[in-house]
Write a protein that binds this DNA or RNA. Structure first.
Length: 186
DNA sequence: CCCTGATTCGC
DNA sequence: GCGAATCAGG
């Protein structure tokens, strides 16, 4: 994936809007947040108008170069992988489809046995929805889907998920209710 | 732990 | 020019 004019313009726009590098990377697709930050610096966009007096960094030792067969020690949870470009109509990346598929599967396959523990939760628990893109989800974000999965603005709740659930407290209540009750509560 | 941007340097 | 690895910090 290269920095085409379109992608650079999108980067400039999103950076100006204040999105973080990782958010921009997720939005553009095919690049890491490091790539975004690197590009931002080469474009001299850094600072974003603010006076972030960047403290001087210490120089680092050269990165050890492993010859072969060593995968990155720790791939960030939201490292995006290359995918076909589709500037006008972004294609949902493959990398996180299992996350989405799992979320949907859990939502629709959950057995009634787990209903009880969530029915007691208070009605006024409302998630701090972050409306994340599929590839922005982590193991600890609520995977409750918002909108039509086939539409462009499809997103996930993204609030902090509860300990033993793919959902936040609020959406756990919905997910583990019978369908009719879910509709009533929603 | 999660995340942020900044920097270096091999490619 | 690019971006992974790393650093420094919230």
């Amino acid at each position: 994936m290269s920095w085409t004019d379109e992608r650079v313009e999108a980067l400039k726009k999103l950076w100006a809007e204040g999105l973080s590098a990782s958010q921009i990377a997720a939005q553009l697709g095919g690049v890491s947040r490091n790539a975004v930050i690197g590009k931002v610096h080469r474009l001299k966009l850094s600072g974003r108008g603010r006076t972030n007096a960047a403290p001087a960094r210490q120089k680092k030792a050269a990165a050890p170069v492993t010859t072969t067969a060593t995968a990155p020690a720790q791939a960030p949870a939201v490292r995006s992988k290359p995918r076909p470009a589709a500037p006008a109509a972004p294609v949902r990346p493959m990398v996180a489809t299992t996350v989405g598929a799992t979320a949907l599967k859990v939502q629709y396959d959950e057995e009634p046995a787990v209903y009880q523990q969530y029915q007691a939760l208070p009605d006024n628990v409302v998630p701090i929805a972050r409306n994340l893109k599929l590839i922005e989800l982590t193991e600890r974000t609520c995977k409750w889907p918002n909108g039509d999965p086939l539409s462009e603005d499809f997103s996930f709740c993204g609030a902090d998920s509860t300990e033993n659930s793919p959902y936040c407290t609020f959406h756990s209540r919905l997910a583990y209710q019978p369908a009719a009750e879910r509709r009533r509560l929603r």
